[in-house]
């Protein structure tokens, strides 16, 4: 069961890498968050912890519904073309993503995470983090950076839930709210950038240098 869900997380991450348009990217992010929700739910069931149910609920509300919905609204409101502007084309991006997954596998082996399902989980977590970072630097539009950040955060969350049974409960909640607030603020700044520059291409934000 767990392996299947982990596979889902990884597959949706690859979907994001090959997405060329904003709605597709946001949809894949929604699926990824949904798989994260399932994993937390299963973990809550096997470990019999109320905290985990609560966190699963938070993931469902914030990451599956509110944040993707908000991002969809932004893409509609600012009325720019929906193409993401790929610096690295989809095929090449996929190859990079596969290479990153392999690196994560090697990395988690050197960290010494046994050979059971934990190794697979940690590998998936690291690859989600690295692929999120890759998404941020290889796409032109500003909201890809926001989604890349959210993907990295999902990866970290996955990682935290598989090592040492997660962080203390109140820390987890605080991190959650922090990420939520930061997404709102970034959305606000996308608006402002669009208003001032009439585009949201981050590669054209280059008046400050030296």
């Amino acid at each position: 069961m767990r392996e299947l869900i982990l596979f889902g997380v990884l597959a949706t991450t690859y979907l994001m890498v090959i997405a060329k348009r904003a709605p597709a990217l946001i949809r894949s992010f929604r699926y990824q968050s949904f798989f994260l929700f399932l994993i937390t739910l299963v973990a809550g069931y096997t470990e019999k912890q109320i905290n985990l149910y609560f966190i699963a609920l938070l993931i469902l509300i914030l990451k599956v519904f509110i944040i993707p919905h908000g991002l969809n609204l932004i893409t509609k409101k600012i009325n720019v073309e929906e193409n993401l502007g790929l610096f690295v084309n989809a095929q090449l991006s996929l190859i990079v993503a596969l290479a990153l997954t392999y690196c994560s596998r090697v990395f988690s082996e050197t960290l010494g995470f046994g050979m059971d399902y934990r190794l697979a989980a940690i590998t998936v977590a690291f690859s989600v983090i690295f692929i999120g970072a890759f998404l941020m630097i290889s796409r032109m539009k500003a909201f890809t950076q926001v989604i890349g950040l959210l993907v990295m955060e999902n990866g970290i969350f996955l990682f935290a839930s598989f090592v040492s049974g997660g962080m203390p409960f109140f820390v987890e909640i605080a991190v959650f709210l922090d990420v939520f607030v930061s997404v709102i603020i970034m959305g606000l700044f996308i608006y402002r950038v669009n208003k001032l520059f009439t585009h949201i291409d981050v590669n054209k934000l280059s008046s400050l240098k030296g």
Binding site: A142, L149, F189, V193, F197, V202, S207, L208
Partner: peptide
């Protein structure tokens, strides 16, 4: 201003990552 919003955007993205 254009410059300050650009700086703010870079600031929040780089520091958040």
């Amino acid at each position: 201003s254009k410059e300050s919003v650009e700086a703010a955007w870079k600031y929040i993205i780089i520091c958040s990552v």
